[in-house]
Amino acid sequence: MRKRERSEDTRHKIELGGLVIKASLGDEDRAYILGVLLTGNRRKGDAQLREQMIKLGHEALRQ
């Protein structure tokens, strides 16, 4: 079971890394990427902004 959990965790991290690449942030400083993510997380309570970000994300995933 532990091996399966580690494999799932690894896959999840790879998928998240793929999203960073998809967002054209792969060449950015790691601190900048983390700052962007932390800012987004702090603002996720803003329902309107959240909906805009979800829409933008869906559009980018379709490309």
Rank of each mutant, 00 (worst) to 15 (best):
D29W: 05
E8Q: 08
D29C: 03
G17F: 01
T10N: 07
K22Q: 11
L25A: 08
D46S: 00
H12A: 05
M53E: 13
I14A: 12
G17N: 09
S7L: 11
G26S: 06
G45T: 03
R50N: 10
R62E: 12
D46K: 04
G57P: 00
V36G: 01
R42G: 02
E8W: 02
R30A: 15
G40Q: 02
Q63W: 04
R11L: 09
S7Q: 12
R43Q: 14
L16Q: 12
A31S: 15
L49S: 05
T10H: 07
E28M: 15
G35F: 04
V20L: 05
L61S: 03
L34W: 05
L38S: 14
E8R: 08
H12G: 00
R42L: 12
K13I: 03
K55R: 11
K3F: 03
E8F: 04
K44I: 12
L34I: 01
R43D: 12
D46N: 11
K3C: 01
Y32N: 13
G35M: 03
L37C: 10
D29G: 04
M53V: 15
R43T: 12
L61T: 02
A23W: 05
R43Y: 08
L16D: 06
L34Y: 06
K55L: 08
G35K: 01
E51D: 13
T10K: 13
G40V: 02
E5C: 01
R4K: 12
E8V: 04
L16H: 06
K13S: 07
E51G: 03
E59F: 02
R2W: 00
G26F: 06
R11S: 07
R6C: 00
R4M: 11
Y32H: 13
L34E: 08
K22A: 08
R43H: 09
R42E: 14
R50L: 14
R11W: 07
R62Y: 02
R62L: 13
M53C: 13
I21R: 09
G57V: 09
R30I: 14
N41H: 11
M53L: 15
G40E: 01
G17D: 04
V36Q: 02
R4G: 00
V36F: 05
E28T: 13
S24Y: 11
L16V: 09
N41I: 04
I33V: 15
R4T: 12
L16P: 00
T39A: 15
E51I: 08
S7C: 00
R2L: 03
N41W: 07
R50T: 08
R50K: 15
I33F: 10
R42Y: 07
L49M: 10
L61R: 04
L49K: 10
L19E: 13
